[in-house]
Nucleic acid binder design. Structure first.
Lengths: 134, 134
DNA sequence: TCTTGACCTTCCAGTTACAGGAACCTCTAT
DNA sequence: ATAGAGGTTCCTGTAACTGGAAGGTCAAGA
């Protein structure tokens, strides 16, 4: 199978698949014409990576998870640790965004949004006093 | 005031302030020794940018907000529109992260996390069936 | 046979918002 | 005179791709 077929199957852009080869996540064979030739294992791996990425794992996480996946002597604790760490990061990010959301939501509510220049949003941003960073 | 003083006042790294000059957000004067010399207006602007950034506004948003701030004939509607758009992006991001969090949370719960290789997390990632991306 | 269009290749640049580091200059205090 | 703190520019790297240029390959139709 050529890269276009795999792109369709895995729902990953061909560009992305080439990139994954560049950084050593996959290693497809080559035909005489230099076209990449993907086998079932490559498809499987790329699907794995795609799903991990869609859960927000970094590329390096994907690399580690893939290695564990292929290591039949792995300890599930190692997998869980990676996942838990990632979950913690997600939770931290959600908390950060929610704090922003709250502040920004209040500011937007209080802004008339008309033709006049008066704007609580700008006034807040321009405030001299040192608040804790959001 | 030199860059270090401003860095302390605004709580922005000196590197960041230089970067903001590079991209034209601020334009401090220079002393004979080529040191940047910041006045009160520069401090004010950098504080403004810092607070906008801490609410997650992009640099280009900051540029636009700063322009509106300095335009005394602005319409608050223009400010509100930028803020509302940003809020929408934040909400989308929160929703995305929450979906990841839910899926990942379930997977982690179901993983024993011991010395054995069996792992529902890996099994899920390796699934052949095409689910909707998370 | 020629051509057209779809597909493939590599390589380079751009994205975001900085951070790190090298090499070097300047100021102040001892 | 020298040390140390602070300033300068310039270059590289980050994450994970995306876009585009320039060009090779393949299958089908006129």
């Amino acid at each position: 199978m050529n890269i276009g077929d795999i792109a369709r199957i895995t729902n990953l852009p061909a560009k992305t698949i080439r990139y994954y080869e560049d950084i050593g996540l996959v290693n497809p064979a080559r035909d005489d014409n230099a076209y990449r030739r993907f086998n079932d294992n490559d498809v499987h791996k790329l699907g794995f990576i795609g799903r991990a990425r869609s859960l927000g794992f970094t590329i390096e996480d994907c690399r580690a998870l893939l290695a564990l996946y292929e290591d039949k002597d792995r300890a599930s604790a190692d997998v869980k640790q990676i996942a838990q760490h990632h979950l913690d990061l997600i939770d931290a990010k959600i908390a950060e965004l929610k704090a922003m959301r709250t502040t920004l939501g209040h500011l937007i509510e209080s802004c008339a949004g008309d033709h006049r220049p008066d704007c609580p949003i700008l006034e807040d941003l321009a405030v001299i006093s040192q608040k804790e960073p959001c």
